[in-house]
Amino acid sequence: MKYVALLPIIDQEKNTQHRPAHLAYINKLYHEGKIMAAGPFTDGKGGMVIYVADTYEEALELAQNDPVVIEGARTLELREWGALTLPLEL
């Protein structure tokens, strides 16, 4: 299953401080096959990560262990995502 983590920034100073650890964490999980995609929003107010996990609980644990979440730089909203395979057959 896929799970989308929305990560709005709530403390810009903490975010700047912990961003290198966040990026290293995301990169590590990507190479382990636990992240499908990740990136910032163009308005500079946060970003999104799409986790690949067997359960919501697994995805939640991965998302909650992100350094920017642990350090209170960003909040976390995690939702299961029903990704469709394109093109759709009508």
Results as ranks from 00 to 15, higher is better:
Lys2Leu: 14
Pro8Gln: 00
Arg79Met: 14
Glu32Ala: 01
Thr55Arg: 00
Leu86Gly: 01
Tyr51His: 03
Asp11Ser: 07
Asp11Met: 04
Trp81Cys: 09
Met1Ile: 09
Gly44Tyr: 07
Asn27Ser: 12
Tyr56Ala: 02
Gly47Ile: 01
His31Tyr: 08
Pro8Leu: 02
Arg79Lys: 15
Ala21Arg: 10
Leu62Tyr: 15
Pro20Ala: 07
Val4Asn: 02
Asp43Met: 03
Gln17Lys: 15
Leu90Ser: 11
Gly82Gln: 12
Ile26Glu: 03
Ala59Ser: 07
Asn15Gln: 13
Pro67Arg: 03
Glu71Lys: 13
Val68Cys: 15
Arg79Val: 15
Ile35Gln: 01
Phe41Met: 09
Thr16Arg: 15
Ala53Ile: 08
Ala53Leu: 08
Ala24Leu: 07
Leu86Ala: 10
Leu7Phe: 06
Val68Phe: 12
Glu32Asp: 04
Tyr51Glu: 02
Gly44Thr: 09
Arg74Lys: 14
Ile70Gln: 13
Leu6Ser: 11
Lys2Met: 12
Asn65Cys: 10
Thr16Pro: 00
Glu61Tyr: 04
Leu86Cys: 03
Ala24Ser: 11
Arg19Gln: 12
Ala21Gly: 03
Leu7Val: 13
Gly47Lys: 00
Asp11Gly: 04
Arg79Trp: 09
Leu62Ile: 11
Lys45Thr: 10
Tyr56Val: 04
Glu77Arg: 09
Glu89Ser: 11
Glu61Lys: 12
Ala83Lys: 10
Val4Met: 15
Leu90Gly: 10
Leu76Ala: 03
Lys45Arg: 10
Ala53Gly: 05
Gly44Glu: 02
Asn15Ala: 15
Glu77Lys: 12
Tyr30Gly: 02
Asn15Met: 14
Trp81Phe: 14
Lys45Asp: 03
Gly33Lys: 04
